[in-house]
Design a protein around this nucleic acid. Structure first.
Lengths: 354, 354
DNA sequence: GATCACTGGTGTAACGTTGCAACGACCATA
DNA sequence: TATGGTCGTTGCAACGTTACACCAGTGATC
């Protein structure tokens, strides 16, 4: 295989007997400026040579890219996989591409990625970081980086141009916890990885709020937040949930209801419940968060808080595109969608006391 | 926010009191060619100005990119999500980026993406297409596109430079089917979407081969391949499996063992089994393919054929990188990894006859 | 028959980077 | 003191594209 020469706009121009400018005009929606005959000649030439414009040259010249960055914890988690998929579809429909970055919840890695994206000429990023502070990206934001954060409610100290799109995590967990309390549960537990991220903190707060509203002492509830790990990957969430369930249920005064920080974690909790010989719902109720596809497939189907990820992804892209194409015109804002509790069969009244 | 001027290599050069060439030399691993003092001045300037090289300019000049393309059916399917994640990690370790493309099993979309990737200057793509023919990418391969196909055994008519990495799907399904037969099952069913892709065809063949080897007439087995849909998305696989199970089990002579084309589909089958009031394993055994994280979490934990996706992803990237950086030196080849049957609890002997 | 406005098309410079060829300065050798 | 070699650094052209300014021709208007 020999070193392949690319087909350039000059070659097309020559083949069509016009100047490169004319070809460029056609390519950039200025076809009306030429005779139909010319236009057809050029189109034929493009077709015949299989010409594809060189994106790097175009980007260098115009300063624009048709690529956005997506930073998620890990597409190994089906929730993020689905989100990535929907975002990518929205992008495709508008001629954009998506560069995938799994931060693995590693701040260093996340920072590195944002820098790289900037180098790539990418000026719009959907960040699903959840790091409380955005200081590591502030210099870039000041230079013109457009950021849409997802699943991370806006913070007071955030840069003002920021757009944030998220489900209301506090409300969501409030709903979940209240559901459990309404079923008669009094001994609850909250299972999560380290509470380092905004959304986890919010979810935890929803849990505590609901407890207090019901007159239950907050300290009566167990909180299991993976003391060992500073942070944990989203795939390991399941393993963590499993471990948590085993530990919680073999202690004294085991909980009868467990709310998990997300569905993967909840599924792990369910597994842990079976590990110790108990039954989900019958012995201990579990509620998750996200409503991944598998929640409904599980046995028992998982009660959970739904994040409408197609809509959220679509909004995120639309918001980002508007800002990238028209920087500085719209002020920062924050969209907080109210989530919905989906009651399935992993929750039931607590077993009657002996 | 005003239009932001990028920081260029010239500005760095000026700030450091050297020429752009010197900065470029430093950036491209030719630091030994300058005095330590110069080097430090330049490094300081880069740091102080927050300079990031413009990738588009660099790519235009050198013709190289540090980006590869990944075309998967859909990262909404946890198997592909995990694969994407591992591939991306391998890429990151070598300074590469990954552009994500979900084909949604739509040939038109896949074709479009490959064209776009080429336009982006990307010369290496991991293609998880499974389309039997590669004709739609042949022109680009001839121009120098390096392709590693994954989960698609090499075909006779493939371009010679092609690398293909895959699990041995025939063997895998053979293992799964034989496992069921060994447990005493005689009435089996194979559930899949349309058998349009190479891997599905292979998996089906493994199923039939095992049947024949056991002296079971192939036509005694039911095959459910989603007659309605031309193709189906990976997320819908679960829905399809569910429907298949309901239909198969309410017919006459229902199967006692079902092998599903992948885990998502198998999970759907399990759900369908419960829909009709039967129990997985106890009444009908199910075996999947992939070994996604959730297989082990499920109730009952799913017996399945494992694809070692971290290793496969790592190999795919290594193979692709070698070819992109050194085109035309290595001939095409094909790596077929033997998969492993993971026996869990979704399979059991068939219920004894009344 | 000048002037003007359009129409269809072209020439040119620039985007930021790289790598080669070339440079002057210095030192060792003859 | 010439000659040659090395060292550290730089000038220059080019990668493929685009947008602006410009131009030559045509037809209408005064």
């Amino acid at each position: 295989m020999d070193a392949m020469a690319e087909i350039t706009i000059q070659q097309v121009a020559q083949a069509a007997g016009v100047s490169p400018s004319t070809v460029s005009n056609l390519l950039n929606g200025r076809a009306h400026r030429m005779l139909p005959a010319t236009r057809h000649r050029v189109e034929k030439a493009i077709e015949r040579l299989g010409y594809r414009p060189n994106r790097a040259a175009r980007q260098l010249r115009t300063g624009r890219t048709q690529t956005i960055g997506l930073v998620v914890p890990s597409v190994g988690n089906p929730f993020w996989g689905a989100f990535a998929r929907h975002l990518e579809s929205a992008a495709l429909a508008e001629g954009y591409h998506v560069l995938l970055c799994n931060s693995e919840r590693n701040p260093e890695r996340e920072r590195h990625y944002i820098d790289e994206l900037w180098s790539d000429g990418i000026r719009g990023v959907v960040l699903c970081s959840s790091l409380p502070s955005l200081d590591h990206v502030r210099p870039l934001i000041e230079r013109g980086l457009q950021l849409v954060t997802f699943d991370r409610a806006a913070q007071a100290a955030d840069p003002e141009s920021l757009v944030s799109i998220s489900v209301d995590n506090v409300v969501g967990m409030h709903l979940a916890t209240t559901h459990l309390i309404g079923l008669g549960h009094r001994r609850l537990a909250f299972v999560s990885g380290a509470l380092g991220s905004v959304n986890r903190k919010d979810r935890y707060r929803g849990f505590v709020d609901a407890l207090e509203l019901a007159g239950l002492p907050a300290d009566s509830a167990a909180v299991w937040s993976g003391a060992s790990a500073e942070w944990f990957g989203d795939v390991e969430a399941a393993e963590l949930g499993r471990e948590a369930a085993r530990e919680l249920l073999s202690g004294d005064r085991p909980p009868t209801g467990i709310v998990a920080v997300n569905d993967m974690c909840a599924l792990g909790v369910c597994r842990g419940i079976r590990d110790v010989g108990l039954r989900v719902a019958h012995d201990v109720s579990v509620v998750g968060f996200d409503d991944i596809v598998l929640a409904d497939l599980y046995d028992p189907p998982l009660t959970t808080v739904r994040q409408p990820s197609p809509q959220l992804a679509t909004s995120a892209f639309a918001e980002l595109k508007a800002r990238v194409e028209n920087p500085g015109t719209t002020p920062g804002r924050s969209l907080l969608v109210r989530p919905e509790l989906v009651v399935r069969e992993s929750t039931a009244p607590p077993p009657s006391h002996p």
